[in-house]
Design a protein around this nucleic acid. Sequence first.
DNA 1: CAGAATCCGGTATGATACTG
DNA 2: CAGTATCATACCGGATTCTG
Lengths: 143, 143
Amino acid sequence: MDITAVDTQATKMAGLVIDILAFSKNGPQICPVRDVLDRIGDKWSLLAILHLGTAEALRFNELRKLIDGISQRMLTVTLRSLETDGLVTRTVYAEVPPRVEYRLTGLGHSLLGAVIELVTWAKVHAPAIAQARLAAAASQVPA
Amino acid sequence: MDITAVDTQATKMAGLVIDILAFSKNGPQICPVRDVLDRIGDKWSLLAILHLGTAEALRFNELRKLIDGISQRMLTVTLRSLETDGLVTRTVYAEVPPRVEYRLTGLGHSLLGAVIELVTWAKVHAPAIAQARLAAAASQVPA
DNA sequence: CAGAATCCGGTATGATACTG
DNA sequence: CAGTATCATACCGGATTCTG
């Protein structure tokens, strides 16, 4: 990739971003971009979506085991808010003991695609970020 | 897209996610996916990256005006942490009054690509989410 | 099993004032 | 202009206990 190609792509991305940000200013309601980012910007939503993307359906305690470190409370809260936003469905089976299954909706699957992009980026560039942090720490306390 | 195609794509995404999550378990250090999500999961980082993606370079107060509602303090904190992670560069010009320019690094631009995917999703599906929320609110207080 | 309710601390964020 | 320093606070999220 030569300089010209880089420039072209950068310009293209800039145009896309400008469109998005312009859109976010329109209308009387809050910015949809911020709104969605707030939703997925919490500690567990994206992880829940990722794990739900690995199976057709998952039960509450299955998710609890898969998402390492999540508390019962936060799993409940997270799933409810994802349900409210139409990203997952919650199905209760009238049995005893109770069984509840969660699965991604079509909307949830469409988000999964974008999320995979992001975590793939994270996976690929994690070493670069770690290195940058080390370099920053080193220049912080040189003596 | 027929049922088979949907299934195939869903299976493919599931495989990708499994790879990513498996990777995140490896090694003694913390999960890189969570690490990066924590970084960009704060309130302002993604917005700063998006705006920096619209121009070659931006000054402190230019960003301040562009990112509506951000406080001086949070802009500073956000930019510093992005700098620490190697996503933006900070250039101080020895002038008076001082001038400081921020611009995305190559790493930052690569993240911008994934972020654009995400916010584009947000832009497209914001109405669907809004509708889901309304439906949830309606079923909440039916009487 | 799958939660609901409650309490509680830490941290992220905001407001304000001061400075090189 | 581009911060830093300090204080105030809201709310996120964890631990615990109780329930259908």
